[in-house]
């Protein structure tokens, strides 16, 4: 349970998940902000007005998935690092996941990374497709990672491979 463990439950995820049709049309934001806090920068970040203006700053963000272009600007702007963009049209078996990343050194496109689930379990490996870290993102990079289609709801972080090698004290084959 989110308030006991920090891990979102399926009902929470249900609220963030865009509908099937939209998911098949390309990249779209999943806003995983599940508890009301006084915060509204996501609305300001969206260039296409897909994230509704907040009438009360404590409201949960409300996104129009149809209007969302999956550009990823909100991913970098969310102070809670709670927004992800998922493109399930990348290939038959692979999806693109854009996630906020604040660890240096930043990975490079082409790097293999360890995929981490919401509960911090390692869920295999992915490959970095693109790294966006312009000045405007103010040190929150947006990393686009290629992940297996069946992990789009689980994977929410990455770790560089060398870190895992260090921790395990041996090389990954």
């Amino acid at each position: 349970m989110l308030k006991r463990t920090g891990i979102a439950c399926s009902e929470d995820i249900e609220r963030a998940r865009p509908d099937e049709t939209r998911r098949k049309q390309g990249p779209v934001a999943w806003i995983e902000c599940f508890r009301e806090i006084p915060c509204d920068p996501c609305h300001d970040a969206c260039r296409v007005g897909a994230i509704e203006e907040f009438s009360d700053i404590n409201d949960l963000p409300c996104i129009d998935h149809e209007a969302c272009t999956g550009c990823g600007l909100c991913v970098a702007a969310c102070p809670g690092l709670a927004i992800f963009v998922i493109d399930e049209t990348h290939s038959e078996t692979q999806a693109l996941l854009a996630l906020p990343h604040e660890f240096t050194p930043l990975p490079d496109a082409g790097d293999e990374v360890v995929l981490m689930t919401r509960s911090g379990q390692e869920a295999g490996y992915g490959r970095v497709h693109r790294v966006q870290a312009p000045r405007a993102f103010d040190r929150t990079a947006v990393i686009w990672v290629i992940i297996p289609q069946d992990l789009v709801e689980q994977v929410r972080a990455i770790k560089p491979l060398h870190q895992v090698i260090d921790e395990e004290g041996g090389e990954k084959q």
Binding site: R4, T5, G6, I7, R118, R156
Partner: peptide, 23 residues
């Protein structure tokens, strides 16, 4: 306490990096 006192988004971002939170 029974529950995490801080914002859920903060809890989630450390949890997904593998830090256990033991209430």
């Amino acid at each position: 306490a029974f529950d995490i006192g801080g914002y859920a988004v903060h809890a989630s971002k450390v949890r997904r990096l593998g830090v256990p939170i033991m209430t």
